[in-house]
């Protein structure tokens, strides 16, 4: 078991590193091979007033006259050694730009994540124990409703209702407590839906098991049953889903920051897209891939330790558990 786990872990780590490097290459290739050429568009923009001579100089200085493969190699080796390059627009190091905006996004993302988890838990709890006449069916509809609402609409509704009508926060102070809380709500609500869907399915599954009936017959109350027995086995598979939602958290913060007027990684991306600042975009996308792959790697590594039913068989790539166990389905979704 010990050895099998180590082999499995080593394999997953190697895989993750390869995926991150390939993601960097992929982004680079997309940006350089697709028909549009932002660099020459910027340079030839008459507003910038470069002469042909100057344009040639700039291109040579940036190494843009080299073949794509050479450029890619230079960029990739810089990325691996932690040199993120310079912003094409401002000329400042991308690392500095990112460091300036990262704290704000981290606050928003973690608050949004907390909102998502809390909301998912509340909804899932409600679907188990709310009597049908008090709207259990309605509660079960919440996840699919949340998944159908664009998060910028949630943001705008919150701003309109709580900012304008109730005056809880002012839009021009995006970093105040209330503004941050509502931004986190806008970010967290669609993500809570995905977690809640899996959690509800698992709770339904566990509640039908015999041990739940036994616990009930021994006189355990609803809250006790939920906390002591159902929650743990149901939330294990959720670990994987949570890891998968990290990507949405990153993408969602882009829009949420725009809606709420916050400065953060999202607004940096938005600005870089409109000015076609490729080094910044390349870095943000690659780092997003690093975070996403890293979190999923962590989930995959922790999972076999948390859930003794998951056994690592043979090469370590295939994992087996009970055929009907939702755990396998969700973990397989990551490795497949």
């Amino acid at each position: 078991m010990r050895n099998a786990y180590l082999t499995y872990a080593a394999r997953r780590i190697a895989q993750a590193v390869a995926v991150v490097l390939l993601a960097y290459v992929f982004t680079f290739v997309v940006v350089s091979i697709l028909p549009g050429d932002p660099v020459s568009t910027i340079l030839h923009d008459p507003q910038n007033g470069f002469t042909d001579e100057e344009i040639r100089e700039i291109i040579a200085a940036q190494g843009l006259d080299q073949p794509i493969a050479v450029q890619l190699w230079t960029a990739l080796s810089h990325f691996v050694t932690g040199n993120l390059g310079l912003s094409m627009r401002s000329g400042r190091p991308v690392a500095t730009l990112l460091a300036e905006v990262l704290p704000s996004t981290l606050i928003l993302a973690s608050a949004g994540f907390a909102v998502a988890l809390l909301l998912a838990a509340v909804i899932a709890y409600g679907t188990q124990f709310l009597p049908a006449r008090f709207g259990q069916g309605l509660l079960r509809g919440f996840p699919s409703l949340f998944l159908s609402v664009p998060n910028f609409v949630i943001g705008l509704v919150l701003i309109h209702a709580f900012g304008f009508q109730l005056g809880l926060f002012r839009v021009i102070e995006p970093n105040s407590f209330w503004a941050t809380l509502f931004a986190a709500l806008a970010l967290g609500i669609p993500i809570s839906a995905q977690i809640a869907e899996v959690l509800i399915a698992n709770l339904d599954h566990e509640a039908r098991q015999e041990y739940a009936a036994v616990a009930r017959s021994r006189g355990l109350g609803q809250v006790g049953l939920f906390v002591k027995h159902l929650l743990k086995p149901s939330s294990l598979p959720v670990v994987t889903v949570i890891a998968l939602t990290i990507g949405e958290l990153l993408g969602g913060s882009l829009i949420t920051e725009t809606v709420f007027g916050r400065t953060g990684v999202g607004s940096l991306v938005q600005r870089s897209v409109t000015t076609q600042d490729l080094p910044v975009l390349q870095t943000v996308v690659s780092l997003a891939a690093v975070v996403f792959v890293g979190v999923n790697l962590l989930a995959d590594l922790v999972y076999p330790l948390l859930d003794p039913r998951v056994t690592l068989v043979g090469s370590g790539r295939s994992r087996q558990a009970g055929a009907e166990d939702p755990a396998t389905q969700t973990t397989e979704a990551v490795t497949a």
Partner: peptide, 25 residues
């Protein structure tokens, strides 16, 4: 192909769309 799909999955969906649309115009 499985590795390529892994790479595509590693880049958050929305960011992927954003970078492609930036490159295309």
């Amino acid at each position: 192909i499985a590795r390529l799909v892994d790479v595509l999955l590693a880049i958050p969906n929305f960011l992927l769309a954003v970078i492609v649309v930036t490159a295309l115009g």
